[in-house]
């Protein structure tokens, strides 16, 4: 455990949930176009994922940027690994890489 509770929380979220999207808003009501775009990709792929609203927790909003050294939100994690933000996820979705990654990692889909 690190001495930073925010980092510990991030680690536990990405370890306990196979697919985690740190986003603005929640999957039902994204609060930003980029978060909405990634939510839509995951929903269309029927991937089970946990949306975490960084707008509800300013420390988390800054902590996640430091954790991944990635300056923007949303941020997608699969099996504990940072995959990318909106651009990268969209590009991977369009060229089939995202499906390949999710299948390789054995994530769950909505049945």
């Amino acid at each position: 455990m690190s001495d930073n509770p925010v980092i510990d929380r991030i680690k536990s979220e990405i370890d306990e949930n196979s697919v985690v999207l740190f986003m603005k808003g929640n999957p039902m009501m994204p609060q930003c176009g980029f978060s909405a775009a990634v939510t839509q990709v995951l929903t269309q792929m029927e991937v089970k994922f946990k949306g975490i609203d960084v707008l509800a927790d300013e420390e988390l909003r800054q902590g996640i940027k430091e954790f991944s050294s990635w300056p923007t939100i949303p941020q997608l994690y699969v099996k504990g690994e940072f995959v990318g933000g909106c651009d990268i996820v969209r590009e991977m979705y369009e060229n089939g890489e995202l499906k390949e990654l999710l299948d390789d990692k054995g994530v769950e889909y909505a049945s």
Binding site: F34, K65, P71, G84, I88, E91
Partner: peptide, 27 residues
């Protein structure tokens, strides 16, 4: 990797990404 490539661009922007610069769709 793509993530590393984008990180190089963000580092070049010296902290402006996500601050003065709200959105930069990168290829």
């Amino acid at each position: 990797t793509r993530v590393q490539q984008h990180q190089l661009v963000y580092q070049a922007l010296q902290g402006r990404m996500g601050n003065e610069l709200h959105a930069l769709a990168l290829q």
